[in-house]
């Protein structure tokens, strides 16, 4: 290598080292630890552990706890994603026009992006709790009933994600070239037909991206459950991440590690599609 090349390599090492150290310590080392924890049996009050191979993995994956929490998380996806996406599209389509004062409406629609998951959860706890809540006695979303509690929790996620969904769909709509819009208007299509045959396909990639993001958000739901129900009633809102979070005791960690690897696999499967999409984004300008 030339001297200049050496200098550039040294500088690159210096520039990348801080990030790489953080990634090694808090992204890759824990991944190795998870595999270790999943294949070893930890015992309470003892630092000794025993290699058990895949025994623990198969045992946990087949347990009613794991399968139950996957079911809860899957139901959470079903409750939050389609409705959240549809509402986001509705808000964006309504706000995608030139009207006096439209900026005010856009700010209101986008505002939930500024509320943290904890704030959103307290807001919905206020709305749904059986004592003081305005909707406290609506049985379809009652937090006191195992059959409906997850729907109540889901409501807070839908609301909290609405701002982000709105912002991204609106950006997608505004990226449609004006000529395309005008051409379809001249063709005399009705507004509804124009929406389903032209607009929706054009923002398809954006919606796909959003759907994946919302599914992952749903898989990761924890604060909502922690604040609104604490996993109850009768364990009906114990999501996958709630189970992982509550497996911190030394003798629970093996179980938690298997479930974390399960979550990782699920996330990978879902991200697979989006990742190719993202990678194209990241790569499309090419290397210098």
């Amino acid at each position: 290598m030339t001297r200049r090349r050496w200098r550039e390599t040294g500088l690159a090492a210096l520039f990348l080292a801080p990030s790489l150290i953080v990634f090694a310590a808090f992204f890759f080392y824990p991944l190795y630890r998870l595999v270790h924890m999943a294949t070893h049996e930890q015992r309470a009050f003892s630092s000794r552990e025993r290699f058990v191979g895949l025994d623990q993995v198969t045992e946990v994956l087949g347990s009613s706890e794991f399968l139950g929490s996957v079911q809860v998380s899957a139901a959470y996806v079903v409750y939050t994603v389609p409705l959240g996406l549809a509402l986001g599209i509705l808000l964006a389509v309504a706000a995608d026009r030139h009207l006096r004062g439209i900026a005010v409406f856009r700010t209101i629609f986008a505002s939930t992006v500024a509320t943290s998951v904890a704030v959103a959860s307290v807001l919905f706890f206020t709305l749904l709790n059986p004592q003081l809540g305005y909707f406290g006695d609506v049985s379809f979303i009652s937090l006191a009933d195992p059959d409906s509690a997850l729907r109540g929790v889901a409501l807070s996620s839908i609301w909290q994600n609405l701002g982000l969904t709105f912002i991204i769909v609106l950006a997608g709509l505004q990226a449609i070239p004006t000529e395309v819009r005008e051409a379809t208007e001249l063709d005399g299509f009705s507004a509804t037909r124009r929406f389903f045959t032209v607009t929706l396909p054009l923002i398809g990639p954006t919606l796909l991206f959003l759907a994946v993001v919302l599914v992952i958000f749903a898989f990761q739901a924890f604060a909502q459950v922690d604040i609104l129900t604490g996993g109850g009633p009768a364990g009906s809102t114990e999501t996958l991440v709630w189970q992982i979070f509550n497996a911190q005791d030394p003798d629970e960690q093996g179980r938690g590690a298997v479930m974390a690897l399960g979550l990782f696999t699920l996330t990978l499967l879902v991200t697979g599609a989006q990742f190719r999409f993202l990678a194209r984004r990241v790569h499309y300008e090419g290397a210098p």
Partner: peptide, 19 residues
């Protein structure tokens, strides 16, 4: 770097608490 995008905080939670 790209691989870290695939590792949500919730997956690495338990070992990171340990660390």
């Amino acid at each position: 770097f790209t691989a870290t995008l695939l590792l949500p905080l919730e997956v690495t939670l338990l070992p990171n608490i340990d660390t």
